[in-house]
């Protein structure tokens, strides 16, 4: 007995420490992220909620508590709904073609090309160009009278498009800038995922006599499903927060005379830093945007769950 108890006391303390070590260490290691997240993520979110309930001047700071009046104000303006419409329109016009194009580009890059690395790096070049520079280049392309596109259209005796006067045309022009910047980036993500697809599956499919298109639709795309979901979620969050491109779309940066291309974040900026200098109202918009993104996030989750239960990598009929 004695021989076993003595060591067991120290060993039990050691065991506790060891257990703590095993249990706690991972949390200690990941804690920097959560500490940082709390400081620069969660705290600002909650503080914004606090600000949104007050009259809050950019320079004077906190004013009276006004309850939900800021939300009421924002929801009562036409501008809010215009901003909502524009944001979703630009988001759909950019994200949908972007994901589709990125998959096809990745598929081509996945093939046996000469100078592979050159092409792969090439698609990333637009991504490293600053958004402001992209906007300046596209300003020349989409200028109403002197722009490249309209000159080409008029050269072919087609009517010029009012890139800055028509809402949908302006959304299309802005979406083009976004696509220019992000398609290559997403293509590389898809490319990485494609290369992780076991080659045996393709070989089996080839032996079964499937064509190139069929292999793409029935092997590549289903195997990419988790990656597609990831890209859709990230581009949703990014797309709903779009700011640089529409703000740089004309010189005033307010989103057009009729606010044709004013997005949610631009509206937020206008309320907070524009002549109204109302952080309270801006915070209200920020929270509404936050809730919309969460709502879409939940929607995404539900759809993904359905897809996942609907049957993972599709089993193609043999």
């Amino acid at each position: 007995m004695t021989t076993t108890t003595r060591p067991s006391r120290t060993s039990s303390r050691r065991a506790v420490l060891a257990r703590l070590d095993v249990r706690l260490t991972p949390y200690v290691f990941i804690s920097p992220f959560f500490v940082l997240f709390f400081l620069v993520g969660l705290f600002p979110i909650l503080y914004t909620a606090w600000v949104s309930l007050h009259e809050w001047d950019l320079i004077r700071g906190q004013g009276e508590f006004v309850g939900l009046a800021n939300f009421q104000f924002v929801l009562g303006t036409d501008s809010f709904y215009k901003a909502l419409r524009n944001t979703f329109s630009i988001f759909l016009l950019s994200s949908v073609p972007q994901v589709i194009a990125a998959i096809f580009i990745a598929y081509i890059l996945d093939a046996n090309l000469r100078a592979k690395t050159f092409w792969r790096m090439g698609v990333l070049v637009p991504f490293i160009v600053a958004p402001v520079a992209v906007s300046m280049i596209f300003a020349k392309i989409f200028a109403d009278q002197s722009g490249l596109v309209n000159n080409l259209l008029m050269g072919m005796d087609l009517p010029a498009i009012g890139w800055h006067s028509d809402a949908l045309a302006s959304h299309f022009a802005i979406a083009t800038m976004v696509n220019f910047r992000w398609t290559g980036y997403n293509a590389l993500i898809f490319l990485a995922a494609m290369q992780a697809i076991p080659r045996e599956i393709y070989e089996a499919a080839i032996i079964d006599g499937t064509g190139r298109m069929r292999r793409f639709w029935h092997v590549t795309v289903p195997m990419l499903r988790p990656t597609i979901i990831f890209v859709v979620i990230t581009s949703t969050i990014g797309g709903l927060q779009i700011f640089d491109e529409p703000r740089m779309f004309d010189t005033a940066g307010s989103g057009g005379a009729s606010r044709q291309w004013m997005t949610m974040t631009m509206y937020l900026y206008e309320l907070g830093w524009g002549p109204q200098v109302s952080f309270g109202r801006a915070s209200a918009v920020a929270w509404l945007l936050f809730m919309i993104i969460i709502g879409i996030g939940i929607l995404n989750y539900l759809i993904t769950k359905r897809i996942a239960t609907a049957g993972g990598p599709a089993k193609t009929e043999r």
Partner: peptide, 20 residues
């Protein structure tokens, strides 16, 4: 309030002068 109102009027002018 000069700028908020001035923007409203300028936008109104831009709508017919530039956007037709």
């Amino acid at each position: 309030n000069f700028f908020v109102i001035n923007t409203v009027v300028s936008d109104a002018i831009t709508r017919w002068d530039v956007d037709g």
